Computed example of a mutant assay.
Amino acid sequence: MTDDAAVQDDHEVEDVAGLEAQGDAAADYIEALLDICDLDGDIDIDVQNGRPYVSVSADDPLALRLLNKAETVSALQELSRLAVQSKTGSFSRLILDIGGSRDARKQELTVLVERAIARIEDGAAQAALPPMSSYERKIVHDVVADRGFSSHSVGEASDRHTVITRA
């Protein structure tokens, strides 16, 4: 192994350790929130695609029903990111999943993409989707590419959305 490769491996280990530390900080924040709300939940921490990923689950699916709505998860994710930044001093691209909310949203986005592709197959030149977060747009881009179509993001800030076209 060359010295450059060894240095790169050391940086990757440090990066993973830093991401795990961010996950730990977010998990501490979410655990405190669950305690305040008197909710039971199991917290899992992982690193996926270069991001800390914190998942909250419960034996009783109804236990987290107040927290797993898309808007609530997004708000809690932002608060968790702030808690991580406060604790570690680092900006975090943390992903928070509560009660399977991310999988449910991916399914919703897949249906949205399928409808948009159907419009294109029926003759439309392109199909624009509603504004969504960068994480959601990434999911859309992946689903669109898997279907053999092309997509790009358009707009600024809260108006940023995805446009789908033929490849």
Results as ranks from 00 to 15, higher is better:
Leu62Ser: 13
Glu108Lys: 08
Arg93Met: 09
Val47Cys: 01
Val7Pro: 01
Phe91Thr: 12
Gln8Tyr: 07
Asp97Val: 06
His152Thr: 12
Leu109Arg: 05
Gln126Asn: 14
Ser80Ile: 05
Ser55Ala: 10
His141Ile: 06
Tyr53Glu: 03
Glu121Tyr: 05
Met1Asp: 11
Ala125Glu: 14
Thr88Phe: 07
Thr2Ala: 07
Ala70Lys: 11
Ser101Gly: 04
Asp9Asn: 12
Arg102Met: 12
Lys69Ala: 09
Ile30Phe: 09
Ile95Trp: 04
Pro130Thr: 10
Phe149Arg: 04
Ala75Leu: 11
Val73Ser: 01
Tyr53Arg: 03
Ile30Gln: 03
Ser158Ile: 12
Arg115Tyr: 01
Glu12Tyr: 06
Val13Lys: 08
Ala125Pro: 13
Ser101Gln: 07
Gly99Trp: 01
Gly99Gln: 00
Asp146Trp: 05
Glu156Arg: 15
Glu71Pro: 03
Leu94Phe: 10
Leu82Thr: 12
Asp35Ala: 15
Val13Ile: 13
Asp42Thr: 14
Glu14Phe: 08
Val56Met: 04
Asp35Ile: 09
Arg160Val: 07
Phe149Met: 12
Gly89Asn: 06
Val140Asp: 04
Glu78Lys: 13
Ala5Pro: 02
Leu62Lys: 13
Arg65His: 11
Asp60Phe: 09
Ala25Cys: 07
Ala104Leu: 10
Ser86Met: 12
Gln107Asn: 12
Ala70His: 11
Val73Ile: 03
Val154His: 15
Leu96Pro: 01
Val111Asn: 15
Val113Gly: 02
Ala5Leu: 13
Tyr135Arg: 10
